[in-house]
Amino acid sequence: MEDQFKEKDNVIRHKSFEFSVRIVNLFKILYYERNEKILSQQLLRSGTSIGANIEEGIAAFSKKEFIYKLQISYKEANESFYWIKLLYRTNYINDVEFESLKLNIEEIIKLLTSIIKSAKLNS
């Protein structure tokens, strides 16, 4: 099932979708197994919003709208990183989970930064 997304999609689209899947799965663990109800919901909202806004940007009718939607994704990625750090510092996620999520979100933030800068230069 995962391969159907890889072949057709661009890198940021794929990575943001896979990050959303990780966040949904982490939410289920935090909410149901680790009994963390509030922070996990915040992360679920911001973490899945990254990819949703990228999808909206890809479907944009103008370059301005595309940039705007990717800027929202960038903000949501930074917010997600905040919740990940907070969950780590409050011992809801362990070192391995934190480092893995940190690598994912930092990569997404770098990609979004690059895409936004490039789109602004070409507009």
Rank of each mutant, 00 (worst) to 15 (best):
E55G: 11
E7G: 06
G57V: 01
Q4L: 14
F19I: 00
V24S: 05
E65V: 02
K64G: 01
K63A: 05
K28G: 00
E56M: 00
I58M: 08
S40K: 05
L39A: 14
K6S: 12
E7S: 13
N53T: 04
A52N: 13
I38F: 15
Y32I: 00
A52H: 09
F66T: 02
V24T: 07
N35H: 14
F66G: 02
S49P: 05
E36P: 06
Q42F: 13
S20P: 04
L43M: 13
N53E: 07
I29E: 15
N53H: 15
G47H: 09
R45W: 06
F17Y: 15
N25E: 14
F61T: 10
F19R: 02
Q41Y: 02
E36W: 04
K37A: 08
L43P: 07
I50Y: 01
V24G: 01
S49N: 07
A52I: 10
S40W: 04
K6F: 10
K15I: 00
D3M: 14
I54N: 04
F17D: 00
V21E: 02
R13C: 06
R45S: 12
K64H: 06
K28I: 01
S20W: 05
E56H: 09
I38Y: 15
G47E: 07
L39F: 13
K63E: 11
Q41V: 00
E65G: 02
L26D: 04
H14D: 10
L44F: 12
E55Q: 14
S16D: 03
E2I: 09
E7N: 13
L26F: 00
I29L: 12
N53P: 10
G57M: 03
L30I: 09
V21P: 02
Y31E: 05
R45V: 02
G51T: 08
L44N: 09
F5A: 08
E7F: 08
R45N: 13
L30C: 10
F17E: 03
G47S: 08
A60P: 01
V24M: 12
F66N: 00
E36L: 04
G51P: 02
F5E: 08
E18I: 14
A59V: 01
S16E: 00
R34Q: 14
E55M: 10
D9H: 09
K63L: 08
L30E: 08
N53S: 07
S16Y: 02
I29R: 09
H14V: 08
E65Q: 08
N35T: 13
I23C: 08
A59N: 15
K37Q: 10
I50W: 01
D9G: 13
N10W: 07
R34P: 10
E56F: 05
E56G: 07
Q42C: 05
S20I: 07
E56L: 00
Y31L: 00
